[in-house]
Amino acid sequence: MRVAVIDLGTNTFHLLIAETAGKELEILYKTNVPVKLGEGRINDNIIIPAAFERGVNCLQDFSHTIAKYKADKVRATATSAVRSAENGQDFVKAVKEHTGITIETISGDEEAELIYQGVKLSGAINDLSLIMDIGGGSVEFILCDTEKLIWKKSYNIGAARLMQQFFKSDPISDEDKNAILFHVQNQLKDLFNICEKYQPKVLIGSAGAFETFAELMIRKNNLKTDISKAKTFGFSFDDYTEIAGKLLNSTHQERSAMPGIIPLRVDMIVIAALITNYVLGRSKINRLTLSTYDLKMGVLASLT
């Protein structure tokens, strides 16, 4: 069976087309487009007209590709930007009208569940772990072990939200950092209670920003790894700390010139490093792994 998965993220829309036979999966096509649906007014819960139009146009292109590949099943999931926007359902209707694609707006809880299923497929869960997925609109945390999901929650502290609300300096000032961390600390109290109780040993970063950290690490150490082909990547904690420090102290221009950072992530990676450092410190974790499998692969698993 041929299936197509569309993940409508706050920053990026993804399309994945795969052939499935039992448990076997063959990826036939994948792409992502920096639509920036949360641009401008995500904290006002509005999709601005320019972003709305970019979203519809991108999905028109996706629908042509899906038709070309003759997919038997299509599942399109929308997350934080559509979920929280007052005109989110208008966007869903406009997409259906212009492309024939039916979008399913999933809850934060469902999003966390699908991320867990995707990460599980990668083989990254080898110990009591905390999975972290930093999106533009929300951040999901999943506590799990090799057998099961123990706890999960989605928080509205995504990189685009925090950036629009707090990131006003270049390089980021201590004042902006403190404002972000104060906000995050207030949001994540129950996460740290659960971490204190279970004491996870590993932080598994789900795709996105963690792929950028991995790219920077690979280039720093002249490794041969190709992240686009890897399911997982083990981080050196010291390397991560050094790279995060460099990102937090750099200007927009310096980050733009760093090979391994895609344009969409030049500023959001600062927010990602800040939150990741905070979570690692508070949960006393010093082992990091990347899973390149995320929500998309979880959705794919749900279709097979």
Results as ranks from 00 to 15, higher is better:
Met1His: 13
Arg2Leu: 10
Thr12Val: 09
Ile17Pro: 08
Ile17Ser: 10
Thr20Pro: 03
Glu24Trp: 03
Glu26Trp: 04
Glu26Met: 06
Leu37Cys: 00
Ile46Tyr: 11
Ala50Gln: 14
Gly55Asp: 12
His64Leu: 13
Tyr69Asn: 03
Tyr69Ile: 01
Ala71Pro: 02
Arg75Pro: 04
Ala76Asp: 05
Thr79Arg: 07
Arg83His: 00
Ala85Pro: 02
Lys93Ile: 00
Val95Gln: 08
Thr99Val: 14
Thr99Trp: 11
Gly100Ala: 03
Gly100Trp: 00
Ser107Pro: 02
Ser107Ile: 05
Leu114Lys: 11
Gln117Trp: 04
Val119Lys: 01
Val119His: 10
Leu121His: 12
Ala124Leu: 04
Ala124Asp: 10
Ala124Gln: 09
Ile125Glu: 01
Ser129Val: 09
Ser129Gln: 10
Leu130Asn: 05
Asp133Glu: 15
Gly135Gln: 07
Gly135Ser: 06
Gly136Asp: 08
Phe141Ser: 01
Phe141His: 02
Cys144His: 09
Cys144Asp: 14
Ile150Gly: 05
Ile157Lys: 07
Ile157Gly: 06
Ala159Leu: 11
Leu162Pro: 08
Leu162Asp: 13
Lys168His: 13
Asp176Trp: 06
Lys177Leu: 06
Ile180Gly: 08
His183Arg: 14
Gln185Asp: 14
Asn186Leu: 05
Leu191Asp: 00
Leu191Cys: 06
Asn193Phe: 11
Glu196Met: 00
Val202Thr: 14
Asn221His: 05
Ala230Pro: 03
Gly234Lys: 15
Phe235Cys: 15
Asp239Gly: 14
Glu242Gly: 01
Gly245Met: 00
Asn249Arg: 09
Glu254His: 05
Ser256Lys: 06
Met258Phe: 08
Pro259Tyr: 09
Ile262Leu: 07
Val270Thr: 13
Ala272Val: 08
Leu274Met: 06
Gly281Lys: 14
Asn286Ser: 10
Asn286Thr: 04
Asn286Lys: 07
Thr292Ile: 04
Asp294Leu: 01
